[in-house]
């Protein structure tokens, strides 16, 4: 299989280390959330794990963790987008990472499997914002008005795909309803920890849509803050588990 219009992109793993990746239209381009997910897992996981990269896109999260010795072989990854499955397979092969990559929605490709670590790398901002944002060009994002649909579904079903001491890592962006997602996480898991938080200024492309953002903010669907003369959002990475880590 080949993907026409594929492109090469670079992802900064550290100050002086970059990963070369193949990507394509309809495949999510790694961004700040990607970086924070990788950092959060590095800060929490101490050795190789049976890892599932859910919504893998280019495969960058799994690949970055593989390159740092934090995944057992094979690495597991899946995405709804066929171009993403193609690109991630190519990228894993490029770095000698043995991986099983499947095509399908959420946990659908992994019925009956269990993992030590699941990384939820799936869209989580309000759908109306995703459509006008610079991040989801051609990438599916059926997240609902407040951005919680997909992540809520993952939180509700992840438990059956985790080993007894397994962890699920997931991002929450303030461009979704943070309170709903935190409540769903608490209802489904015994332990919820915020690992990392990063504030970031609203990009210029979204400033053009301030009436929409202010409306969603007023409705409680998202949270915006204005400081330093900037409109600020934030991304937090959470880790949930059903055992009590020592």
């Amino acid at each position: 299989m080949t993907i026409e219009q594929h492109k090469e992109i670079k992802f900064s793993l550290a100050l002086d280390k970059k990963i070369d990746l193949v990507s394509a239209p309809g495949v999510f381009t790694p961004n700040l959330t990607t970086n924070l997910l990788i950092q959060a897992i590095k800060n929490t996981v101490s050795g190789p794990t049976k890892l599932l990269d859910l919504g893998c896109g280019t495969g960058v999260v799994g690949l970055a963790l593989y390159l740092q010795g934090l995944t057992k072989s094979p690495l597991y990854a899946s995405d709804l987008s066929k171009p993403a499955v193609f690109c991630s397979r190519e990228n894993f092969k490029r770095y000698g990472c043995q991986a099983e990559v499947r095509n399908g929605a959420l946990f659908e490709p992994w019925l009956g499997e269990k993992f030590d670590v699941i990384v939820d790398d799936i869209s989580a901002i309000a759908q109306d914002i995703a459509v006008v944002s610079p991040w989801f060009q051609g990438v599916p994002c059926d997240t609902g008005k407040d951005g919680t649909n997909l992540v809520s579904e993952i939180l509700c079903s992840a438990r059956q795909y985790l080993t007894d001491k397994g962890f699920l890592f997931f991002p929450i962006l303030s461009l979704s309803n943070v309170d709903i997602l935190l409540n769903v996480a608490k209802e489904n898991f015994g332990t919820l920890n915020r690992v990392i938080r990063q504030d970031w200024p609203l990009p210029a492309e979204l400033k053009l849509h301030m009436p929409l953002l202010r409306k969603l903010n007023a409705e409680g669907s998202i949270k915006l803050e204005e400081r330093f003369g900037m409109v600020l959002c934030y991304t937090e990475i959470y880790c949930v588990t059903n055992f009590q880590p020592v």
């Binding site: 504030d199 970031w200 200024p201 400081r227 330093f228 003369g229 900037m230 600020l232």
Partner: peptide
Amino acid sequence: LSILVALDRLFDGKIVSIADMA
């Protein structure tokens, strides 16, 4: 943003209200 947060700490919270700094 990182610069503004750091300068606000250095100048005891006096930067947050200076919109031009953004």
